[in-house]
Design a protein around this nucleic acid. Structure first.
Lengths: 257, 257
DNA sequence: CGCGTGGTTGACACGGATCAATCGTGGTGG
DNA sequence: CCACCACGATTGATCCGTGTCAACCACGCG
């Protein structure tokens, strides 16, 4: 529940919560509108025109939520497209008494639920903030009007949904055909590439290990054991919440089907 | 490889291949164009206007393939939206020497790959026909023009992609949190509901049990054992490729999270 | 009639979950 | 300031689900 993450391997270094850390190196203006780079990250493809930006900012609604808040609930009617601008949100199945079943975590800026609004059926899963978050909502009626005027917007949304489909297909594939070690290796490689493109292949975990385990569909105990395996094999170096990929090639080979 | 499916429990009844059977009770004109009901099944929402039908038929390309043919290959550039009109297509990972890794099977009429074309990255998985199939292809450039003229078409496509996302989220959820028995129960219920809405809850399997097992991410041996379990519990009655759901309520309870 | 294919069954092995204990850390209250 | 506690991670022991391997059966086809 708490956004603060604590380590415990040998050194037990403390890392700052994502919500408390500066959100990005580029531009994080404290005004009430999403920044241009936010929009660009969400709506891929060619550069957004000033007219598009203006129209988007006109219909966008922003919400700020503390850590642990419910962003939306399963089966709750969806009338807006939702994205997380900063912070991270967990998707999965929330359960009343017990710990939630985290299935995916989305770190902003990225789409949260780009699809449910187009079907009249409500959200497919629960969503809750893992840190303080800024949520962007695009009401469907206004977006429909915008799409009628700006046909290119439709294609941007289609591309966004297509990207979601792609990542889900990949996830399903991994769940069906890869064991825990393979999935962890693949996750480390993906995290290292998307996190930042430096050479030494350093990786800040950025969330509780139990949450990482949940997304890999393994228990925290197994995650701990698999990390030790990789460490013993000399593929990675672990210091609390910092992982250094020592042999990306071998990791890739291990993660391959 | 063969479209003919043979049973073997006690009676070993023979069921006809889907490709050989009449495709539907409604309308399956033998002309070269998709029927109105095909379009309506693919592009959900409100009824398609005659103008929309005309425009779609103008850009649609049809392909007929025998069973076991490659529909598309992973990483192959995708420049069209693909659907299967009749027959069924397997999605997954084809491997040269060995049996393919079937992950999903699509029975027409339904979209096959509605997303890859919008990203410039090629298909995410292999696709091959499990029976003789009729494939519908919508070239992207022509579709773009159509979307500019008919903005409603964009929304139909978005809804289609959203439905894909929903089913993939559901699949990932099941893979993460349900054991083999739960997944089989859920699959039986889903098959019985979508297959036909009659009361007795009869279910024709319609594909090889090993293919069913592959989609449930279990081995054929485990599928056989799970079927026997459910039979012993009195939840289902099995006769070859016909399954009768005796206690849908108990099945639902078993399949629940 | 032999052979190939697909399904079922049993014996066994293994991956990963579960349960329980321990450790290190940070926060809290006396 | 320090004892105490909550929480997360780690480790070990054990159990269970499911994959693997092998044998066998039933059917259709050449």
């Amino acid at each position: 529940m708490s956004p603060f993450i604590v380590d415990s391997l040998n050194t037990h270094a403390v890392i700052s919560a994502r919500g408390a850390a500066p959100r990005g190196l580029s531009s994080a203006p404290m005004n009430d509108l999403p920044s241009r780079s936010d929009w660009q990250a969400l709506l891929s493809g060619t550069t957004l025109s000033p007219a598009e930006l203006l129209a988007l900012n006109a219909i966008a609604r922003l919400r700020e939520l503390p850590a642990g808040a419910t962003v939306f609930a399963r089966a709750q009617p969806a009338s807006e497209l939702l994205a997380v601008l900063s912070g991270s949100v967990g998707l999965g199945l929330a359960r009343v008494g017990q710990a939630a079943h985290l299935e995916r975590s989305i770190r902003g800026p990225a789409w949260l639920d780009l699809g449910s609004a187009w079907l009249g059926e409500g959200h497919a899963q629960d969503a809750w903030s893992l840190s303080p978050v800024r949520i962007l909502a695009l009401p469907l009626p206004a977006l429909r009007e915008l799409m009628a005027v700006q046909p290119a917007m439709s294609e941007r949304l289609l591309a966004g949904l297509a990207r979601t489909v792609r990542s889900l297909v990949l996830m399903a594939h991994d769940l069906m055909h890869k064991d825990a070690e393979k999935r962890l290796a693949a996750w480390l490689l993906q995290g290292a590439s998307s996190g930042c493109g430096e050479g030494p292949a350093l990786l800040q975990l950025g969330q509780r290990k139990r949450d990482i385990a949940a997304q890999l569909a393994i228990t925290p105990e197994t995650l701990s054991r698999m990390m030790r395996q990789l460490k013993l094999k000399g593929l990675i170096e672990v210091q609390g919440y910092t992982v250094r990929l020592l042999d990306a090639g071998a990791l890739r080979a291990l993660a391959a089907d």
